[in-house]
Amino acid sequence: MKSRARTMLDKSIAAMLSAIEIYNKPDFNYRAETFSVLCINSWELLFKAKVLQLARNQVTSLYVWEHRQLKTGKKSKKRYIKTNRAGNPMSVSLFEAHRIIIEDYGVKVNKAVKTNIAALTEIRDNSIHFINDDLTLAIKVQEIGTASLQNYLHLVQEWFGPVLDKYNFYLMPMAFFRGFDSVNGETLNASEKKILEYIDSIEKEYDDESLSDYNLSLRIDVNFKKVKSGSGVPIQITNDAKAPVVRLAEEEIMDKYPWDYDVLTTRLKKRYSDFKANADYHRIRKSHEDNEKYCHKRLYNPSNPDSGSKVFFNPNILKEFDKHYTKKS
Protein backbone atom coordinates (compact mmCIF):
# COMPACT_ATOMS: atom_id res chain seq x y z
CA MET A 1 0.00 0.00 0.00
CA LYS A 2 1.35 3.40 -0.97
CA SER A 3 2.07 5.94 1.73
CA ARG A 4 0.22 9.27 1.72
CA ALA A 5 3.46 10.99 0.72
CA ARG A 6 3.94 8.71 -2.29
CA THR A 7 0.29 9.11 -3.35
CA MET A 8 0.68 12.89 -3.19
CA LEU A 9 3.94 12.65 -5.14
CA ASP A 10 2.24 10.59 -7.86
CA LYS A 11 -0.43 13.30 -8.19
CA SER A 12 2.31 15.92 -8.47
CA ILE A 13 4.07 13.98 -11.22
CA ALA A 14 0.76 13.51 -13.06
CA ALA A 15 0.12 17.26 -12.94
CA MET A 16 3.61 18.05 -14.25
CA LEU A 17 3.31 15.50 -17.06
CA SER A 18 -0.04 17.03 -18.02
CA ALA A 19 1.56 20.49 -18.10
CA ILE A 20 4.34 19.23 -20.39
CA GLU A 21 1.97 17.31 -22.65
CA ILE A 22 -0.29 20.31 -23.19
CA TYR A 23 2.63 22.68 -23.73
CA ASN A 24 4.15 20.40 -26.35
CA LYS A 25 0.98 20.03 -28.43
CA PRO A 26 1.50 21.23 -32.04
CA ASP A 27 -1.36 23.72 -31.87
CA PHE A 28 -2.79 24.91 -28.56
CA ASN A 29 -3.81 28.54 -28.15
CA TYR A 30 -3.91 28.44 -24.34
CA ARG A 31 -0.48 26.82 -24.06
CA ALA A 32 1.42 29.11 -21.69
CA GLU A 33 -1.56 29.79 -19.43
CA THR A 34 -2.48 26.12 -18.97
CA PHE A 35 1.15 25.14 -18.42
CA SER A 36 1.62 27.74 -15.66
CA VAL A 37 -1.56 26.60 -13.85
CA LEU A 38 -0.67 22.89 -13.94
CA CYS A 39 3.02 23.46 -13.18
CA ILE A 40 2.22 25.46 -10.03
CA ASN A 41 -0.31 22.82 -9.01
CA SER A 42 2.42 20.18 -9.39
CA TRP A 43 4.86 22.16 -7.23
CA GLU A 44 2.26 22.56 -4.47
CA LEU A 45 1.59 18.83 -4.44
CA LEU A 46 5.34 18.11 -4.39
CA PHE A 47 5.90 20.33 -1.36
CA LYS A 48 2.92 18.75 0.41
CA ALA A 49 4.28 15.29 -0.38
CA LYS A 50 7.56 16.30 1.25
CA VAL A 51 5.77 17.66 4.32
CA LEU A 52 3.92 14.35 4.66
CA GLN A 53 7.18 12.42 4.27
CA LEU A 54 8.87 14.49 6.97
CA ALA A 55 5.82 14.33 9.28
CA ARG A 56 5.52 10.53 9.22
CA ASN A 57 2.58 10.73 6.80
CA GLN A 58 0.34 12.49 9.30
CA VAL A 59 -2.29 14.23 7.17
CA THR A 60 -2.88 16.78 9.95
CA SER A 61 0.55 18.21 9.12
CA LEU A 62 -1.08 19.74 6.01
CA TYR A 63 -4.08 21.26 7.80
CA VAL A 64 -4.52 24.95 8.55
CA TRP A 65 -4.96 25.45 12.30
CA GLU A 66 -6.55 28.47 13.99
CA HIS A 67 -7.46 29.88 17.40
CA ARG A 68 -11.21 30.42 17.36
CA GLN A 69 -13.00 33.52 18.58
CA LEU A 70 -14.66 32.93 21.96
CA LYS A 71 -17.89 34.57 23.19
CA THR A 72 -15.74 36.73 25.45
CA GLY A 73 -14.04 38.19 22.39
CA LYS A 74 -10.73 36.49 23.18
CA LYS A 75 -8.97 33.83 21.14
CA SER A 76 -9.12 30.21 22.30
CA LYS A 77 -5.94 28.65 23.65
CA LYS A 78 -6.76 25.43 21.86
CA ARG A 79 -6.14 25.28 18.12
CA TYR A 80 -8.82 24.01 15.78
CA ILE A 81 -8.71 22.82 12.19
CA LYS A 82 -9.91 25.55 9.86
CA THR A 83 -12.54 24.35 7.39
CA ASN A 84 -13.55 25.52 3.92
CA ARG A 85 -17.03 26.32 2.59
CA ALA A 86 -17.80 22.60 2.17
CA GLY A 87 -16.79 21.89 5.77
CA ASN A 88 -13.61 20.04 4.82
CA PRO A 89 -10.24 20.78 6.45
CA MET A 90 -8.31 23.55 4.69
CA SER A 91 -4.81 22.60 3.59
CA VAL A 92 -1.76 24.85 3.71
CA SER A 93 -0.82 26.92 0.68
CA LEU A 94 2.08 26.34 -1.70
CA PHE A 95 4.38 28.83 0.01
CA GLU A 96 3.33 27.76 3.53
CA ALA A 97 4.28 24.17 2.66
CA HIS A 98 7.63 25.53 1.41
CA ARG A 99 8.08 27.39 4.73
CA ILE A 100 7.29 24.28 6.79
CA ILE A 101 9.89 22.26 4.90
CA ILE A 102 12.61 24.85 5.45
CA GLU A 103 11.82 26.36 8.86
CA ASP A 104 10.11 23.54 10.74
CA TYR A 105 12.30 20.72 9.45
CA GLY A 106 15.52 22.46 8.41
CA VAL A 107 15.59 21.09 4.86
CA LYS A 108 17.86 23.14 2.60
CA VAL A 109 16.22 24.31 -0.65
CA ASN A 110 18.04 26.54 -3.12
CA LYS A 111 16.55 30.07 -3.14
CA ALA A 112 16.25 29.98 -6.94
CA VAL A 113 13.50 27.35 -6.55
CA LYS A 114 11.21 29.69 -4.62
CA THR A 115 12.01 32.67 -6.86
CA ASN A 116 11.25 30.61 -9.96
CA ILE A 117 7.93 29.43 -8.50
CA ALA A 118 7.03 32.99 -7.46
CA ALA A 119 7.59 34.21 -11.02
CA LEU A 120 5.53 31.37 -12.46
CA THR A 121 2.79 32.07 -9.91
CA GLU A 122 2.57 35.67 -11.09
CA ILE A 123 2.13 34.42 -14.65
CA ARG A 124 -0.51 31.94 -13.51
CA ASP A 125 -2.46 34.56 -11.56
CA ASN A 126 -2.39 36.94 -14.50
CA SER A 127 -3.51 34.11 -16.79
CA ILE A 128 -6.51 33.32 -14.61
CA HIS A 129 -7.68 36.85 -13.90
CA PHE A 130 -6.58 38.66 -17.05
CA ILE A 131 -5.43 37.80 -20.56
CA ASN A 132 -1.90 36.95 -21.63
CA ASP A 133 -1.56 37.38 -25.38
CA ASP A 134 1.94 38.47 -26.27
CA LEU A 135 4.91 36.75 -27.86
CA THR A 136 7.46 38.24 -25.46
CA LEU A 137 5.60 36.90 -22.45
CA ALA A 138 5.18 33.48 -24.13
CA ILE A 139 8.96 33.23 -24.57
CA LYS A 140 9.51 34.22 -20.95
CA VAL A 141 7.07 31.52 -19.84
CA GLN A 142 9.16 28.95 -21.69
CA GLU A 143 12.42 30.14 -20.11
CA ILE A 144 10.97 30.10 -16.61
CA GLY A 145 9.06 26.88 -17.27
CA THR A 146 12.16 25.07 -18.52
CA ALA A 147 14.08 26.07 -15.39
CA SER A 148 11.11 25.03 -13.26
CA LEU A 149 11.14 21.55 -14.79
CA GLN A 150 14.87 21.21 -14.16
CA ASN A 151 14.44 22.33 -10.55
CA TYR A 152 11.56 19.88 -10.14
CA LEU A 153 13.64 16.97 -11.44
CA HIS A 154 16.51 17.70 -9.07
CA LEU A 155 14.29 18.06 -5.99
CA VAL A 156 12.25 14.92 -6.68
CA GLN A 157 15.49 12.98 -7.15
CA GLU A 158 16.95 14.41 -3.95
CA TRP A 159 13.82 13.91 -1.84
CA PHE A 160 12.28 10.70 -3.18
CA GLY A 161 14.94 8.91 -5.21
CA PRO A 162 14.89 7.88 -8.91
CA VAL A 163 11.11 7.85 -9.37
CA LEU A 164 11.27 9.93 -12.58
CA ASP A 165 13.74 7.79 -14.50
CA LYS A 166 11.07 6.47 -16.87
CA TYR A 167 9.84 9.93 -17.90
CA ASN A 168 11.15 12.50 -20.38
CA PHE A 169 10.84 15.96 -18.85
CA TYR A 170 11.37 18.72 -21.38
CA LEU A 171 9.53 21.50 -23.15
CA MET A 172 9.77 21.44 -26.92
CA PRO A 173 11.46 24.69 -28.02
CA MET A 174 8.84 27.14 -29.24
CA ALA A 175 11.10 28.06 -32.15
CA PHE A 176 10.31 24.62 -33.53
CA PHE A 177 6.74 25.75 -34.15
CA ARG A 178 7.12 29.22 -35.59
CA GLY A 179 9.50 32.12 -36.05
CA PHE A 180 10.49 33.79 -32.83
CA ASP A 181 13.29 35.91 -34.22
CA SER A 182 11.21 39.11 -34.21
CA VAL A 183 9.03 40.29 -31.34
CA ASN A 184 6.98 43.46 -31.19
CA GLY A 185 7.02 44.61 -27.60
CA GLU A 186 4.48 47.33 -28.28
CA THR A 187 1.68 44.74 -28.27
CA LEU A 188 1.96 44.23 -24.51
CA ASN A 189 -0.89 45.49 -22.39
CA ALA A 190 -0.29 47.13 -19.01
CA SER A 191 -0.59 43.96 -16.93
CA GLU A 192 1.76 42.01 -19.21
CA LYS A 193 4.36 44.77 -19.06
CA LYS A 194 4.26 44.71 -15.27
CA ILE A 195 4.81 40.94 -15.21
CA LEU A 196 7.81 41.19 -17.55
CA GLU A 197 9.24 44.09 -15.52
CA TYR A 198 8.84 42.00 -12.34
CA ILE A 199 10.54 38.96 -13.92
CA ASP A 200 13.33 41.14 -15.32
CA SER A 201 14.00 42.60 -11.86
CA ILE A 202 14.36 39.21 -10.18
CA GLU A 203 16.41 37.72 -13.03
CA LYS A 204 19.11 40.34 -12.45
CA GLU A 205 19.74 38.80 -9.04
CA TYR A 206 20.91 35.59 -10.71
CA ASP A 207 22.89 37.07 -13.63
CA ASP A 208 26.29 36.67 -11.98
CA GLU A 209 25.70 33.35 -10.21
CA SER A 210 27.87 30.38 -11.08
CA LEU A 211 26.36 27.28 -12.66
CA SER A 212 23.92 25.54 -10.33
CA ASP A 213 21.50 22.63 -10.42
CA TYR A 214 18.72 25.11 -9.68
CA ASN A 215 17.78 28.10 -11.83
CA LEU A 216 15.28 30.93 -12.12
CA SER A 217 15.06 30.79 -15.93
CA LEU A 218 16.84 29.03 -18.79
CA ARG A 219 17.15 30.35 -22.33
CA ILE A 220 17.18 27.74 -25.09
CA ASP A 221 19.03 28.10 -28.40
CA VAL A 222 17.91 25.72 -31.12
CA ASN A 223 20.42 24.51 -33.74
CA PHE A 224 19.91 21.76 -36.26
CA LYS A 225 23.02 19.73 -37.13
CA LYS A 226 23.52 16.66 -39.26
CA VAL A 227 24.94 13.74 -37.35
CA LYS A 228 26.23 10.35 -38.37
CA SER A 229 23.71 7.54 -38.11
CA GLY A 230 25.96 5.64 -35.71
CA SER A 231 26.40 8.48 -33.24
CA GLY A 232 23.58 7.39 -30.95
CA VAL A 233 24.05 5.88 -27.53
CA PRO A 234 24.74 2.11 -27.84
CA ILE A 235 22.53 -0.28 -25.92
CA GLN A 236 22.48 -4.02 -25.51
CA ILE A 237 19.39 -6.13 -24.88
CA THR A 238 19.55 -9.71 -23.65
CA ASN A 239 16.99 -12.48 -23.34
CA ASP A 240 19.22 -14.43 -21.02
CA ALA A 241 16.95 -15.75 -18.26
CA LYS A 242 19.97 -15.99 -15.96
CA ALA A 243 20.77 -12.27 -16.23
CA PRO A 244 20.52 -10.54 -12.85
CA VAL A 245 17.34 -8.57 -12.14
CA VAL A 246 17.87 -5.13 -10.68
CA ARG A 247 15.07 -3.67 -8.60
CA LEU A 248 15.24 -0.09 -7.42
CA ALA A 249 13.64 0.45 -4.03
CA GLU A 250 15.08 3.89 -3.40
CA GLU A 251 11.68 5.54 -2.97
CA GLU A 252 10.72 3.05 -0.25
CA ILE A 253 13.98 3.76 1.55
CA MET A 254 13.50 7.51 1.35
CA ASP A 255 9.95 7.13 2.63
CA LYS A 256 11.11 5.12 5.64
CA TYR A 257 14.15 7.30 6.40
CA PRO A 258 13.15 10.87 5.36
CA TRP A 259 15.32 12.88 7.80
CA ASP A 260 18.95 13.78 7.22
CA TYR A 261 21.28 15.28 9.85
CA ASP A 262 19.99 18.85 9.37
CA VAL A 263 16.34 17.82 9.68
CA LEU A 264 16.99 15.67 12.74
CA THR A 265 18.89 18.47 14.47
CA THR A 266 16.15 21.02 13.66
CA ARG A 267 13.41 18.74 15.01
CA LEU A 268 15.35 18.11 18.23
CA LYS A 269 15.83 21.86 18.79
CA LYS A 270 12.08 22.36 18.44
CA ARG A 271 11.20 19.35 20.61
CA TYR A 272 13.43 19.80 23.68
CA SER A 273 14.08 22.71 26.02
CA ASP A 274 17.59 21.58 27.00
CA PHE A 275 18.89 20.35 23.65
CA LYS A 276 22.28 21.44 22.34
CA ALA A 277 24.09 20.22 19.23
CA ASN A 278 27.20 19.34 21.21
CA ALA A 279 29.41 16.31 21.80
CA ASP A 280 26.72 14.55 23.86
CA TYR A 281 24.24 14.88 21.01
CA HIS A 282 26.72 13.52 18.48
CA ARG A 283 27.57 10.60 20.77
CA ILE A 284 23.90 9.66 21.24
CA ARG A 285 23.16 9.99 17.53
CA LYS A 286 26.14 7.94 16.40
CA SER A 287 25.30 5.18 18.90
CA HIS A 288 22.16 4.46 16.87
CA GLU A 289 23.56 4.81 13.36
CA ASP A 290 24.10 1.06 13.02
CA ASN A 291 20.52 0.31 14.07
CA GLU A 292 18.46 -0.28 10.90
CA LYS A 293 15.33 0.51 12.88
CA TYR A 294 16.41 4.14 13.10
CA CYS A 295 19.09 4.75 10.46
CA HIS A 296 20.04 4.01 6.88
CA LYS A 297 23.40 4.75 5.28
CA ARG A 298 22.93 5.75 1.65
CA LEU A 299 26.00 5.28 -0.55
CA TYR A 300 26.83 8.18 -2.86
CA ASN A 301 27.70 5.59 -5.50
CA PRO A 302 25.82 2.30 -4.85
CA SER A 303 28.21 0.38 -7.13
CA ASN A 304 31.21 1.49 -5.08
CA PRO A 305 31.08 0.63 -1.34
CA ASP A 306 34.05 2.97 -0.72
CA SER A 307 32.38 6.03 -2.30
CA GLY A 308 31.25 7.42 1.04
CA SER A 309 27.74 7.60 2.44
CA LYS A 310 25.12 9.87 3.98
CA VAL A 311 23.05 8.85 6.99
CA PHE A 312 19.26 9.20 6.96
CA PHE A 313 17.00 8.74 9.99
CA ASN A 314 13.59 7.33 10.74
CA PRO A 315 11.51 9.78 12.85
CA ASN A 316 11.04 7.05 15.46
CA ILE A 317 14.58 7.82 16.61
CA LEU A 318 12.99 10.61 18.65
CA LYS A 319 12.01 7.95 21.19
CA GLU A 320 15.69 7.40 21.96
CA PHE A 321 16.38 11.10 22.38
CA ASP A 322 13.38 11.38 24.71
CA LYS A 323 15.45 9.38 27.20
CA HIS A 324 18.13 12.08 27.33
CA TYR A 325 16.34 15.43 26.87
CA THR A 326 13.36 17.30 28.31
CA LYS A 327 10.38 17.95 26.07
CA LYS A 328 9.08 21.49 25.78
CA SER A 329 5.81 22.06 27.55
Rank of each mutant, 00 (worst) to 15 (best):
M8Q: 14
K11S: 11
K11V: 08
K11Q: 09
S18C: 12
N24L: 04
R31L: 10
T34E: 14
V37R: 06
A49D: 00
K50H: 01
V51G: 05
V64H: 03
L70Q: 13
G73N: 03
K77N: 14
Y80S: 09
S91Q: 15
V92I: 15
V92G: 08
S93Q: 02
L94V: 07
E96V: 03
R99C: 07
T115R: 15
I117Q: 12
A118P: 00
A119V: 04
L120F: 07
S127V: 02
H129I: 04
H129S: 02
D133Y: 01
L135Q: 12
K140V: 12
V141E: 08
V141N: 10
Q142P: 04
S148W: 03
L149K: 02
Q150F: 05
P162E: 04
L164T: 05
K166H: 14
K166V: 08
F169I: 02
A175S: 15
F176V: 10
F177P: 03
S182N: 14
S182C: 11
V183A: 13
G185W: 11
E186Y: 12
K193C: 00
I195C: 00
Y198F: 02
E203G: 00
D207M: 13
Y214D: 14
V227I: 06
K228R: 09
S231V: 05
Q236C: 00
K242I: 03
A249V: 06
E251Q: 12
I253R: 01
I253C: 04
D255H: 11
P258N: 15
W259Q: 15
D262V: 00
V263S: 15
L264I: 05
L264E: 04
T266S: 14
Y272F: 11
D274L: 08
A277S: 13
A277R: 11
D280Q: 11
R283N: 10
K286R: 15
H288C: 06
D290P: 02
C295H: 07
H296L: 08
K297V: 04
S309E: 10
S309A: 11
K310H: 11
F312A: 13
F312T: 12
F313S: 07
D322T: 01
T326G: 11
K327S: 08
S329G: 12
S329Q: 12
